Amino acid sequence: MKTITQLGIFNNKIASLTYLFVIFISLGTFAQNTGDPNGEGDDRMKIIMEFTSTDLNVREIEVIADNNATSNYDLDFDVQLNNALSQDMYWMIGGAKFTQQGIDEISTETVLPLGIKTDMYGMNSIAIDKLENMPSTTKTFLHDKDLDVYFDLADGAYEVNLAAGEYNNRFELVFQAPETLGLTNSQLNDKSIRVFYNNSTSQINVQNKSNVKIEGVEVYAINGQRVYAENTINSRDSIKVNTYNMGTGAYIVLAKTETHVETQKIIIH
């Protein structure tokens, strides 16, 4: 009986030492993943994005730069979204949805695809909630591929009307923008282009007040459906768009010039 008791004590000591060893290894791995060899802080670059849906639900997602991560799926860094809300935003990695992701670096060449899901028509906004350990020179742009717009998120939230559905190949977070396509709120207030509806002629007028080159005009219904597009205009004259095939209601007009994109909401009646 004495021998059995001593063996039990010995086994308990081995189990305790094994448990402590596992804890020690886990803490060491966590310290390594924070980018601080002492585990005392986290100096990695991090971006937290905020999505506000039509019914004002808020989702935050984050990306972190770590030398141990890759641009593909990483078990130690990426957190998959298993149960998406009816209105939600997420990172897209290899066709799957994630709320957190790690990447090896954040540079001007980095492109991070975003997905949005919504079950109703309405306004949605995408914004930067927080930047951590980012160089002061870093610029962040929301690229709307359908509208070919790069919106500077330092200027505020990007707002877009979306119909019900999933948009998994339309939006992406990028860190540089073609100079002629960058869109900011200050440019939205640029009055070199005036867009208005002329009720007497049933036409949308894109009035060119500063002789800039108008490269294209697109018109979207309030549900997000594109009802008109002409992207090979390349004219310095004013443009007129017939609205005979458009019903009454609100529309968004995008006039693309050689310097910026002008957007204007109009009412056809």
Rank of each mutant, 00 (worst) to 15 (best):
A31H: 00
T248V: 11
L173M: 14
S125W: 02
G35R: 01
E218N: 15
D74I: 04
G8F: 10
M45D: 03
I9C: 04
S186Y: 10
T138H: 03
N124D: 05
S125M: 05
L17F: 09
G115I: 07
I193V: 15
M1W: 07
P37A: 03
V174M: 08
T3S: 11
A229N: 15
S125E: 11
A229I: 14
L17T: 12
D190V: 12
F171H: 11
E230K: 15
D152L: 13
N11G: 02
K46V: 09
F196L: 06
A163P: 13
L7Q: 15
N67S: 09
I126T: 03
D78R: 01
A157G: 06
W91F: 06
L188V: 07
E218C: 10
A127Q: 07
N72K: 09
T54P: 03
S125G: 04
E132G: 01
I9F: 11
T184M: 07
P135C: 10
L85C: 00
K97P: 00
Y158M: 07
A15G: 01
T140Y: 03
N189E: 15
S200W: 07
E258Q: 12
G182Q: 14
Y197A: 05
S186E: 15
N82I: 10
I126N: 00
I233A: 08
I204C: 02
D104L: 02
R194F: 06
K265I: 13
Q207M: 09
T248E: 13
T5S: 09
N185Q: 07
T110Y: 01
S192F: 03
V149G: 01
D148Y: 10
D78M: 02
D43G: 11
N231Q: 14
N168P: 10
D43T: 12
K209T: 13
A164H: 03
L17K: 12
T257K: 03
N223L: 04
N199D: 14
Y19G: 06
P178T: 11
I268V: 15
P37R: 02
I252D: 10
I214M: 07
I93Y: 02
I266G: 03
T5K: 10
D66M: 05
V174S: 04
E230L: 11
W91T: 00
G94H: 02
V195Q: 04
D43A: 05
N208M: 05
S136A: 14
F171W: 13
V227S: 08
T257G: 02
G182T: 15
K117T: 15
V206R: 05
I267M: 13
T108E: 13
M1T: 06
A221Y: 10
S16M: 06
Q225M: 12
K191L: 14
I252C: 10
G156A: 09
T54C: 07
G39V: 12
S235F: 08
A229Q: 15
T29M: 05
V174N: 06
L7G: 06
V227A: 04
S86L: 11
V195M: 08
G216S: 10
A255I: 07
P135G: 06
A84I: 06
T137E: 12
V217T: 11
I214K: 06
S202H: 13
I64F: 00
F24S: 12
V195D: 04
G41W: 01
R236S: 09
V79A: 00
S210D: 13
F171V: 12
V79I: 10
D36L: 03
